[in-house]
């Protein structure tokens, strides 16, 4: 009860501050729309898809997972600013739940990702993408879990390194191979065997496959439960680890 209340308190505060900044809201909406409008038209020929709608079925899930990963991974920067302002220290002297300090923030990130995802899905519907609503909700669940994990990890790392200068290269080095090896932008079906083998070790690759299966209406596919299980386990681990950083971070 106290935990739920604490989480809600932090979530409210963080959301309020986010909405107060019109630049962020604008970027958050504008960026995904650009991807959809400017990048997607290249896809039909590139993917050899029969129709534009078929190309979207492959590209949109990838784009959503991409946003979930990046939306989360770079949240740590805001936390470093808070750390520097003394806001985290001030929170840590109160009896508020340490898990709530993390989760309130991460849930804000999950919700803002969901808003982006809905905008993109609606736009894609205009371009003849068709998804069954149940499948779509499961895909959103997968995205929420990914965002929860990446944002929690980003917060945890931020509390450990405590400086933007260290966080930026670190997150980039993590993000790049993860991105390239997950088949987000182009499916790995064209990849040579060795690349496939490496990608099998990339949890995001499983998440992308699962999300694509859901967009394809293939609910029964093994990839769906595999993707969901892997992301759920990783999200739980990420949250657990990051909450511990909140509990013991020094300065």
């Amino acid at each position: 009860m106290k935990f739920a209340r604490d989480t809600w308190l932090i979530f409210q505060r963080q959301t309020q501050l986010l909405l107060r900044n019109p630049v962020w809201v604008f970027v958050g909406v504008f960026q995904p729309v650009m991807y959809l409008l400017l990048f997607a038209p290249l896809l039909k020929p590139a993917l050899n898809a029969p129709t534009q709608a078929a190309a979207y079925k492959i590209f949109v899930p990838g784009l959503l997972v991409l946003l979930a990963i990046f939306g989360g991974l770079f949240q740590g920067f805001g936390l470093i600013a808070e750390l520097r302002a003394g806001v985290i220290e001030r929170s840590r002297v109160t009896p508020i739940s340490r898990l709530a300090l993390l989760l309130g923030r991460s849930l804000r990130d999950v919700v803002s990702l969901m808003a982006q995802a809905v905008i993109i899905t609606l736009l894609a519907l205009l371009f003849d993408l068709r998804v069954f609503i149940g499948d779509l909700l499961l895909a959103y669940l997968m995205l929420a879990l990914i965002a929860l994990m990446t944002s929690a990890v980003s917060y945890g790392v931020a509390l450990k390194v405590k400086s933007e200068d260290a966080l930026a290269p670190l997150m980039n080095t993590v993000a790049q191979p993860v991105l390239l090896l997950s088949g987000i932008l182009l499916p790995l079906t064209f990849a040579p065997g060795w690349l496939q083998a490496i990608a099998d070790w990339n949890p995001f690759s499983w998440a992308v496959d699962g999300t694509r299966a859901l967009f394809a209406g293939d609910l029964g596919s093994d990839k769906v439960w595999q993707g969901l299980t892997i992301t759920a386990v990783l999200a739980a681990l990420g949250v657990f680890w990051a909450a511990r950083q909140f509990a013991r971070s020094v300065r």
């Binding site: 106290k2 604490d6 308190l9 505060r13 501050l17 107060r20 900044n21 808070e82 302002a85 003394g86 806001v87 220290e89 001030r90 929170s91 002297v93 109160t94 009896p95 508020i96």
Partner: peptide, 27 residues
């Protein structure tokens, strides 16, 4: 209560918001 050396307020919040939030963090 603890007031750190280096400050503890957030630039984009108002004093009233900070005070209400902080009180609520104490339950």
């Amino acid at each position: 209560g603890y007031v750190p050396q280096g400050g503890s307020t957030w630039d984009e919040s108002t004093a009233r918001e900070e005070l209400v939030l902080h009180a609520r963090m104490y339950g």
